[in-house]
Simulated scan of single mutants.
Amino acid sequence: MALVNAGVVVLDCAEPEKLAEFYKGLLGAEGTDATANRIEIRSADGFRMAFRRDVNATPPSWPRPENSLQAHLDFWVDDLDEAERGVVELGGRPVEAKDALGVHEERGYSDPAGHSFTLRRTAQTAPKQG
């Protein structure tokens, strides 16, 4: 038996409205709950995130060591190039320019408030046919 019910990933930021819009576009999500200092969203597959106002929020400096990671998110995608174009259009910024080799190719980014996340290519279980 689980000790807790499923939770939600919460990112602190100076402008939760702006960050919620970024992740709504990234995840194809809808807003579910909002107060003056917190906005929650839910994607079609049930993934939940929230953004809490902290006027003193300091963006992480990753990959630099000072003020390094505060949180890190991984998202699975089918097409890294297409996903990257979408991230940049939404206001995200690449933080790594090279692909990691291997089964899980990945690229690092930061959201508009500076939180880091990675897009990882969805591993294919069988070769493409035709």
Rank of each mutant, 00 (worst) to 15 (best):
E96R: 10
G28R: 07
L11C: 05
W76K: 10
V87A: 10
P59R: 07
T35R: 05
K98G: 09
A34N: 10
K24I: 09
R38Y: 13
S61C: 02
K98Q: 13
A50T: 09
T32I: 15
E89T: 10
F22A: 06
G25V: 07
L69D: 03
A83V: 11
P60L: 07
E30W: 00
F51Q: 08
F22D: 07
K24C: 09
F47Y: 14
R53C: 09
D74L: 04
D79M: 12
V87F: 04
D81V: 11
D54M: 12
P16G: 06
F22M: 08
R53F: 02
R38L: 15
V87I: 13
F51I: 13
D12A: 13
S43H: 05
L73I: 12
E40N: 10
A97H: 15
A20Y: 01
E15F: 02
F51K: 09
P94V: 11
E17Q: 10
E96L: 12
W76G: 04
A14N: 07
L27S: 00
G92R: 08
F75N: 02
N67A: 06
V77H: 02
P60T: 15
V77K: 01
P63R: 09
G86A: 14
T35V: 09
T32V: 15
L69F: 04
E15G: 01
L73V: 15
E40G: 04
G92W: 09
E21G: 02
A83E: 09
R93N: 08
G31F: 01
E30A: 11
V88T: 12
D81E: 15
A36R: 10
I39H: 06
K24R: 12
L73R: 07
I39C: 03
L19S: 07
R85P: 02
A20V: 05
E66D: 10
D81M: 04
G31R: 14
V88M: 06
A50F: 03
N37C: 09
P16D: 04
